[in-house]
Amino acid sequence: MVVTCADTSPPLAECLAGLVNQEPRPAEVIVVHRRGGAEIVGLRAEFPDVRFVEFEGKTDAARNAGLARAGAEVVAFIDSDCVAQPGWLASLLENYRNPAVAAVGGRLVEPSGGTNTLIGLALPNGTLATGFDRDPGRTIQVEHLSPANASFRRESLDAAGGFGSHYAGDGGTGVTELCLRLHAGGQRICFAPGAVVRKPAADRVPPFWPDLRADYRVRRDHVLLLALVHGTSAKVVRNYLTVAVREEFDCFARMRARSGPVMADGTPRLLSRRLTAPVVVGRGLAGVTGLVAGLAVAVKANAGRKRGG
């Protein structure tokens, strides 16, 4: 069991308590943390059976670092701000009785909306359906898992070479890449609704100024993910580029809408708002730049892979 965390704040203690109280008890719990501190000393004393590994890097690289130290046949990954609910581990492990199963993930108790969406599918237009908070009532097959609540058969992880770490963002795209690779290779990935982790809802207050870097990273990482899994010239990559460019070009329509004198609810729009409307075009440009950068990295990475055989 590998726990990755960016800091060692109180949720980690709750996370570890949730893990060590699982039935069956995990063979080992490894915490890969980025910054050491006084809290670690306290946690070491509180959880003497847990191994703490300090690591500087992104989440996917941290997962690989934990994986290198894990010896179990099945390795589960959980984020430090998540708390595994009773029965989580048992639900995950139950599915590995089927030798065709390479990975099993579970449910996030985090409202994400869209109750009628399907879970964990890769769509033909290149986008990913998540819906990991939904309960389908039985174990189902999916194509990717939530990085915050995923487990893998050790041999599948080793055969795939662990998690990819080409990504600019820190959202666990390496886990998604591995899942899509396993699925493309004909291996079975399951979603077990009984394996629940409680994850705090993300802060959804929109910032006043758009985060252009985030827009760039999202597009870059997504097109890179698709190109690494399916190949740079794959149809799904072309489909995604079509969809993404179209969405980014909507920034001009959004700008026009934001520069009008009246808001959608009929109230007058502030002059400052109208004057800053062109900022949304920057988001579009950041997205398109991300697409180009992602493709460039993918071409290079795929060429390197070919050379390496």
Binding site: T115, N116, T117, L118, L123, P124, N125, R134, P136, N239, V243
Partner: peptide, 12 residues
């Protein structure tokens, strides 16, 4: 009003 698996002729 249930979760549907939707098939189409194009990716859009």
């Amino acid at each position: 009003a249930v979760p549907s698996y939707r098939v189409d002729f194009r990716f859009r």
